[in-house]
Simulated assay, not measured.
Amino acid sequence: MGSASTSWSFTVTSSPLSSSFLVPSSSLAGSCPPLTFSVLRKIFLLALVGFASQICGYAGIDYSSPVLGTAMMNLIPAFTFILAIISRMEKLNWKGSSSQAKLVGTVASILGALVITLYKGPTILRLPSLPSFVHPRHLVSLLSRQLNWVLGGFLLSPAEAFLLSLWFIMQAFILKDYPVVLNIMFYLMFFATIFSGLLSFIMVREPQSWTLKLDVGLIAILYSVSV
């Protein structure tokens, strides 16, 4: 079973479990404002953005490494700050020390992400002189791994990190219209289950990919449900 199949089966397994656990919690929310079609549409878009960021993250890690994926998570505060300014949730005071510190941190995070992404890429990495007996196929394989690292970095930074930041900003706007967190999370997981189910059954053709085993994969699913 390939890592891509594992990612799809992980997604389609964790989402329905999360939504099922949220059913009794959402029923205990008590009196709450009516759920309008406008709010439900926003939750649908929120689930779509979250699902897209999750898929980009899995693909990025598959192309690069979990270490790079963890490092790229530092971009989330930077992108969130930029989106907060664009959406006028954050006011930028050029003379204030707080705004200046946020700007410096944002620039440093983005530059650091570019360095760690391109460090193993063909643009910056200087290959040592290869001996004459190296087979061209080995050189192509080496360059392919370097390109995969760069592709994984861009899937993790502009794609996953940016979409997660957008996900947080969208949550803030939805909570202003419908301040019932448990109900929002239930519908969020419900829509995520639909997205992951449709795409997973299309992408995963191996029946053994849907078999749950007592291994790290099952622990990861239970952990994702708990958080």
Score class of each variant (00 low, 15 high):
V39T: 02
L40C: 12
R41G: 12
K42M: 03
K42S: 13
K42I: 08
K42F: 04
I43G: 05
I43K: 08
F44I: 01
F44V: 05
L45I: 13
L45C: 09
L46K: 13
L46R: 09
A47R: 00
A47C: 05
A47S: 05
L48C: 12
V49P: 03
V49F: 11
F51K: 02
F51P: 03
F51G: 11
A52D: 03
S53R: 07
S53L: 06
S53Q: 04
S53K: 06
Q54L: 09
I55A: 12
I55F: 08
C56V: 02
C56T: 08
G57R: 13
G57A: 08
Y58L: 07
G60W: 13
G60K: 14
G60Q: 14
D62A: 12
D62C: 10
Y63C: 13
Y63H: 15
S64P: 10
S64I: 12
S65E: 15
S65A: 14
P66V: 07
V67M: 15
V67H: 15
V67F: 14
L68T: 10
G69V: 13
A71M: 15
M73L: 11
N74E: 01
L75E: 04
L75R: 02
L75D: 00
I76D: 08
P77S: 00
A78E: 00
A78W: 09
F79L: 00
F79D: 01
F79G: 07
F79N: 06
T80L: 05
I82P: 01
I82T: 07
L83Q: 04
L83R: 06
L83T: 02
L83W: 04
A84V: 06
A84I: 04
A84P: 00
A84H: 00
I85C: 08
I85G: 03
S87T: 11
R88V: 05
M89V: 07
E90K: 06
K91I: 06
K91L: 02
L92M: 07
L92K: 04
L92T: 03
N93V: 11
N93Q: 08
W94V: 14
W94K: 12
W94R: 12
K95M: 02
K95L: 01
G96K: 14
G96I: 15
G96R: 15
S97E: 05
S97V: 08
S98F: 14
S99P: 06
S99L: 01
S99Y: 10
S99G: 04
S99M: 04
A101K: 12
L103I: 11
L103H: 02
V104Q: 05
V104C: 06
V104K: 04
G105A: 11
G105M: 09
G105Y: 08
T106H: 01
T106K: 05
T106W: 03
V107S: 05
V107T: 03
V107D: 02
V107M: 03
A108T: 12
A108I: 13
